[in-house]
Design a protein around this nucleic acid. Sequence first.
DNA 1: ACCTGTGAAATCGTTCACAGCG
DNA 2: CGCTGTGAACGATTTCACAGGT
Lengths: 258, 258
Amino acid sequence: MATGRTHRPATRSRGIPEATVARLPLYLRALTALSERSVPTVSSEELASAAGVNSAKLRKDFSYLGSYGTRGVGYDVEYLVYQISRELGLTQDWPVVIVGIGNLGAALANYGGFASRGFRVAALIDADPAMSGKPVAGIAVQHADELEKIISDNGVSIGVIATPAGSAQQVCERLVAAGVTSILNFAPTVLTVPDGVDVRKVDLSIELQILAFHEQRKAGEEAPPEEETAPPVAPPAATVKKRTDPGSDGDVPAVMPA
Amino acid sequence: MATGRTHRPATRSRGIPEATVARLPLYLRALTALSERSVPTVSSEELASAAGVNSAKLRKDFSYLGSYGTRGVGYDVEYLVYQISRELGLTQDWPVVIVGIGNLGAALANYGGFASRGFRVAALIDADPAMSGKPVAGIAVQHADELEKIISDNGVSIGVIATPAGSAQQVCERLVAAGVTSILNFAPTVLTVPDGVDVRKVDLSIELQILAFHEQRKAGEEAPPEEETAPPVAPPAATVKKRTDPGSDGDVPAVMPA
DNA sequence: ACCTGTGAAATCGTTCACAGCG
DNA sequence: CGCTGTGAACGATTTCACAGGT
């Protein structure tokens, strides 16, 4: 099944580049830290270094927002905090629901970084009846049956999926049907959603695999040998495959108590 | 990237584009699923759809690895699983340590997706003495004092940081000094590392902020913009600048500086 | 007929370098 | 002067479209 559409379909608006949007939260965090230290202004150089990017990129990024700096001086910290917050939509309240309260869901519920921005955890939802009513991060977990009601009662438009991979698509569909239009997916699976719904995914094992790739390359640089070990599987041999080996892998769900 | 310099300038002919590397785990997951269903071959079209990308991209990606397909037929699933695993370095064992066993660290320790690939959780480390010895995901938590010894005894080269932001840089430095050269950072802070050390970060609140940006934009497209609270901070000088809009102007949605 | 592999074109993103303003 | 804002050069990535096997 499936022609999976997973990305925002390029709206016609003359918008801010996606790469820039992805860095705004980074700038915002650096600015917030400066603000807390009552620093009045920063140069692109200083702010860039605090955010871990280079100054040309930062200036270019800001140029998409408007001309908020002062030549010869830099940027006004407070003003920029406000402008970026507004651009990101953080000046309004975003109720979110977290579905799947396993280890990861609980970690998310407890994560301070949510509440500190405009995000408010409106509800925690889990399919396990044994979880219902249990308080996690000070919020009573509700049963999945309530999902639609919770979404509409709270005007939730952002949902976080932290369920096992097997349930993710189903949960996703219910969220979307109930009105959610943005989803943050922690389950290691590709979600198929209708046009107009945004999905971002966070996959822990993918990140590790990317690191392993680079790690392997580093190791290979020291030892030049270009070995070509014989593959355990022959190239286009055309033999029908037997069952896959032991209970290896299978992309275990996104976190569940062992 | 933390400080100014990072990334290799694609010196070798062996250089696979970073964007491609980032998708290999996705392909691998889709292939593994096919393998478990004993599907012998897939076309680029089928596999692409299972992985959530388009087929041209997938073919281009695979072309960087070599010519592993058969024209008129498609790709041999088992063979491709092996080739990608090897390319990613998953045919070897990668011991990892997780530092910071709070909610998130525990979730990571329990995450099946790690063990199912070449990753093995070699140790769980926490600075809280009260945690020492406690079993999490079947592994006894060890005290941070043991960090260096654990790294070297186990030949760990990949570390996962799940500590509070305040401790992350310090932990990072100890990991690096002890020999770790790849770090997956969950703490919401920019890590500064020496050359040769890779850092990937996963920031939950950043993902939500990006969603909020798009969510806000969606809302602005339907309903006419409504002016909200006046900026709590006035622009630096009394002079309010106009927004210099690069390119055309005209159909930008709601949010804009007056 | 079908599907891969890949140059070439189009698009997107980053960096350079400097004009212009405070 | 110092620092922003930005065209223009550059580089990376995606998409097109079709040549070339099977």
